[in-house]
């Protein structure tokens, strides 16, 4: 059935089953591939997007359950100017980069509520997996946000 999704400020009408996870609507139906498939069970965070400004793992989020605007990595800013993106470049966080869309979205949601998270708050909230092991840089980049 048709669903009307506001993604990055643009209205998309998609005709899919209601239980289809948002991840696959984004990637395969709409073609926004910045949001990544990592595990399919909401265990790794690679698929993190914002719904109503909250970080959610889109790989298990049925499209029928969505009631608010969606922001993906492509819509976080138009020109990579979001403070988290800038900090990620400044601190050279990504290695392979595959998990970083989700990592950045998770951090962006956190700092929107809590601009100066402690390391413990960061670790508790941002449980995304990075197999390249960029965690030191993630912490440095978040700390640099807090000092702005």
């Amino acid at each position: 059935m048709p669903y009307h999704l506001t993604i990055n400020g643009t209205l998309h009408d998609v005709d899919v089953e209601g239980e289809m996870p948002l991840l696959w609507v984004l990637r395969d139906v709409i073609g926004l591939t910045g949001t990544k498939f990592g595990c399919g069970i909401a265990a790794c965070g690679a698929c993190t997007v914002h719904v109503n400004g909250e970080a959610v793992r889109s790989c298990t989020l049925p499209v029928a359950s969505i009631t608010g605007p969606i922001t993906t990595i492509e819509g976080l800013s138009v020109d990579s100017s979001h403070p988290v993106q800038k900090a990620w470049i400044e601190k050279q966080v990504p290695q392979c980069g595959y998990c970083q869309s989700g990592m950045i979205m998770a951090v962006a949601a956190l700092v929107a509520h809590n601009p100066k998270p402690s390391e413990a708050e960061l670790a508790t909230t941002v449980t995304n997996v990075c197999r390249c092991g960029t965690y030191d840089r993630v912490r440095e980049a978040v700390a640099s946000l807090a000092s702005v």
Binding site: I73, S77, Q85, I89
Partner: peptide, 15 residues
């Protein structure tokens, strides 16, 4: 390679 890895434009095989 880093700028394209913070805005979703990096093209991985899966994309």
């Amino acid at each position: 390679d880093i700028p394209e890895k913070v805005n979703g434009t990096a093209q991985f095989g899966i994309d």
